[in-house]
């Protein structure tokens, strides 16, 4: 079987210790949590860090809580915890939609939200979810914390705003009344990366869409948020015609490539089709939320 090249390993006992290790070892150090992206890359010898900083014991980064009007999720929160969280499901059904189809159960037992976002794979689901939700990331370094909106978190494929000596420590998602959200993904089989996927989050205020967020996965970089579609939706009354238009815009505002998952043309079609479907469900859920909250 494939095995990684040699490296050093440190199990961090605190976030500060982890940051210190990352600062000291610079580019040669990598954080490991679930490891399901990093370790296979290391086995293929496509990644060869000199030091792995294991943050699995940093339980202070493993939490899901509402503070004020934000849901705060620690970076070490496992996929499974997100999937099983009633709090998350109540406010953000899009997260449950996505978590049900992210990898598979044993992988979800180990993988973390922080790892998913930091991998910055354009096909990764939670990034599109967080994009649609207008999430903000909290990055901590020696100088303290800085907050980066999801739109700026990914700097390109496999590249994030997290600098040397820094760590993603938290994800913040705004909690709003009358909210609905949904995630639609096409995969070739259970556990596969998306052929294409679309996440939609919005609120309904007096029958009109507000705070719209639309994020796509696996259709090229830069689609984690689609301002053009969001602008279209905000302030409009939901209708099939609107969904059509939103889908059309979504498929225009992405840059898929042909690969073994499907042709660019097909993925572009999916971007529209899945946006429409997610939008429909998100609106229905928002409607239900409005009723529930009334």
């Amino acid at each position: 079987m494939q095995v990684p090249a040699s490296f050093d390993y440190q199990r961090a006992q605190s976030v500060d210790e982890a940051l210190e290790l990352l600062r000291r070892h610079g580019e040669e150090a990598r954080v490991v949590a679930g490891g399901h992206s990093l370790l296979p890359m290391m086995k293929l010898r496509l990644a060869g860090p000199e030091l792995l900083v294991d943050i699995n014991e940093l339980h202070e980064l493993d939490y899901i809580e509402v503070v004020g009007d934000e849901l705060r999720v620690g970076a070490l929160t496992r996929h499974r915890a997100l999937l099983e969280s009633e709090l998350v499901g109540r406010h953000f059904p899009i997260v449950h939609d996505a978590e049900k189809v992210i990898a598979d159960p044993p992988v979800r037992n180990r993988g973390t939200i922080g790892g998913s976002l930091c991998q910055a794979d354009p096909s990764e689901d939670l990034s599109a979810v967080c994009g649609a939700l207008h999430a903000r990331t909290v990055i901590r370094g020696a100088a303290g914390e800085r907050i980066v909106p999801m739109a700026d978190f990914h700097r390109g494929p496999y590249e994030t705003a997290v600098g040397v000596g820094e760590m993603l420590v938290e994800v913040r998602i705004p909690v709003r009344p009358g909210a609905g959200s949904a995630y639609e993904k096409v995969e070739r089989k259970a556990g596969d990366w998306a052929v294409a996927a679309a996440g939609v989050a919005l609120t309904l205020r007096e029958g009109r869409i507000a705070d719209a967020g639309v994020g796509l996965a696996a259709v090229g970089a830069g689609a984690l948020e689609l301002p053009a579609v969001q602008d279209l939706l905000d302030g409009r009354e939901p209708s099939e015609a609107l969904y059509e238009e939103a889908g059309r815009l979504a498929s225009e505002h992405c840059s898929p490539v042909t690969d073994s998952r499907g042709s660019a043309e097909y993925k572009r079609h999916l971007a529209g089709e899945l946006t429409r479907r997610a939008l429909r469900r998100a609106v229905a859920r928002a409607g239900a939320a409005v009723e529930r909250e009334a």
Binding site: M1, R11, G35, K43, P105, P106
Partner: peptide, 27 residues
């Protein structure tokens, strides 16, 4: 496999299934 897809290596870690090809012994 080498990509944590096949699940042949599943063991329970603290009671939950994990793929032991993608967990380091030190972890």
């Amino acid at each position: 496999c080498d990509t944590s897809n096949c699940g042949t290596c599943v063991v329970l870690m603290d009671g939950e299934p994990v793929k032991s090809c993608t967990v380091l012994a030190v972890m």
